[in-house]
């Protein structure tokens, strides 16, 4: 409670007025702080929160709502986990196994962590997205700028576990991963996932540099000749403050960037975070975001988070939707690598 400064909340309600969930449900960040501060009650709202990070930007008292939510959720049972909790079970199972401690024997100082793209493509096969392409594309692009990283085979970073309130599982994963990275002798860890980037740099104490791949992509020297629009994932944007790097990666390589109505700090959320609350309400948020993307007139929607990618593609490929979107939703690395291949 003390770290989040929730006790200094004076109930102005600015957080509730900006909350994206408030547009579609009765979720109220103000109310959840009120109930917790005054009565010590747990409300449903702490589970419907998207942890998108919009409300702390508005708060006049600078309450850190994200740490408040993290603390409130700790040790409690989540209200609703999507996909029957298969990713939660997988992470819990891997946290209790010794795991794969193999390490490539090269002296590269760079490490590359692909995140959970493997399990996404295994268990989300009806989304019709090749998540593995994110990894192959990233490696191609890194090769182009002269970085030959070692593949880091550590366990899941534990992002979802942390936000689902399973702190004990997260701590086990964190210990194992920290030990693995210390032994590996890597000094820069590159990741292609916005969530891993947030978790490894903010929730771990690694002592090594963690870089998101979009921060390295501006010197590719490609000549892209198409209009694109960019969706800021909450983990990369508001959580980490990386707004310009992915935009530079696109514009420096010649793409024409068309901004959506809400972008950068005010970007709308894709609607689901840490695989919680995939329902009709959050689907409405996804539709709102896709509408904004379609309104720019660009034919490609680019994002840097594999979860955002999955959720938009899931909406796009739904059988009985009222609207059909003529948009390609791709990851930044996949887009750049395809352009690289086409330019050869």
């Amino acid at each position: 409670m003390l770290n989040s400064k929730a006790q200094s909340c004076y109930q102005c309600g600015k957080c509730t007025s900006i909350c994206p969930m408030r547009r579609v449900s009765k979720t109220s960040p103000r109310n959840s702080i009120y109930n917790s501060n005054i009565y010590g009650l747990e409300t449903k709202d702490i589970w419907t929160c998207l942890t998108c990070g919009l409300c702390p930007q508005e708060c006049p008292q600078q309450v850190d709502f994200l740490s408040f939510i993290k603390q409130e959720r700790e040790g409690k049972t989540p209200l609703d986990i999507a996909h029957l909790g298969v990713f939660t079970e997988l992470a819990e199972l891997s946290s209790r196994l010794n795991g794969n401690t193999k390490m490539e024997k090269t002296d590269s100082k760079y490490g590359f962590f692909p995140g959970c793209v493997d399990s996404l493509s295994l268990f989300l096969h009806d989304v019709k997205t090749d998540f593995g392409e994110i990894t192959t594309s990233s490696l191609k692009l890194l090769d182009k700028i002269g970085i030959k990283p070692r593949m880091v085979q550590m366990k899941c970073c534990g992002h979802d576990m942390l936000w689902q309130g399973k702190k004990d599982v997260f701590d086990r994963l964190k210990n194992d991963n920290t030990k693995y990275l210390k032994e590996s002798g890597i000094d820069t860890l590159i990741t292609s996932c916005a969530e891993c980037y947030r978790t490894l740099s903010k929730d771990y104490d690694l002592g090594i540099k963690v870089v998101h791949i979009s921060e390295l992509m501006d010197k590719l020297g490609l000549k892209i000749n198409s209009e694109v629009t960019y969706h800021d994932p909450c983990r990369l944007g508001r959580h980490m403050g990386v707004y310009d790097a992915p935009r530079r990666a696109l514009t420096a390589n010649g793409a024409k960037l068309k901004e959506m109505e809400h972008s950068k700090e005010n970007a709308l959320c894709c609607g689901v975070s840490s695989f919680m609350n995939c329902n009709e309400q959050t689907k409405a948020l996804r539709i709102a975001r896709m509408d904004e993307a379609a309104a720019t007139g660009a034919k490609t929607l680019i994002t840097t988070c594999s979860k955002c990618l999955a959720h938009f593609n899931c909406l796009k490929n739904e059988k009985d939707t009222a609207k059909k979107y003529d948009l390609d939703v791709v990851d930044l690395t996949v887009f750049l690598a395809r352009q690289l291949e086409a330019g050869k």
């Binding site: 997988l90 199972l93 891997s94 196994l97 795991g99 794969n100 493997d118 399990s119 295994l122 096969h125």
Partner: peptide, 16 residues
């Protein structure tokens, strides 16, 4: 069959 085969792949990565 699709599901179980995918699960087998995930388990192989965990050493199970």
């Amino acid at each position: 069959e699709i599901r179980i085969n995918n699960t087998k792949k995930a388990l192989a990565k965990l050493g199970l």
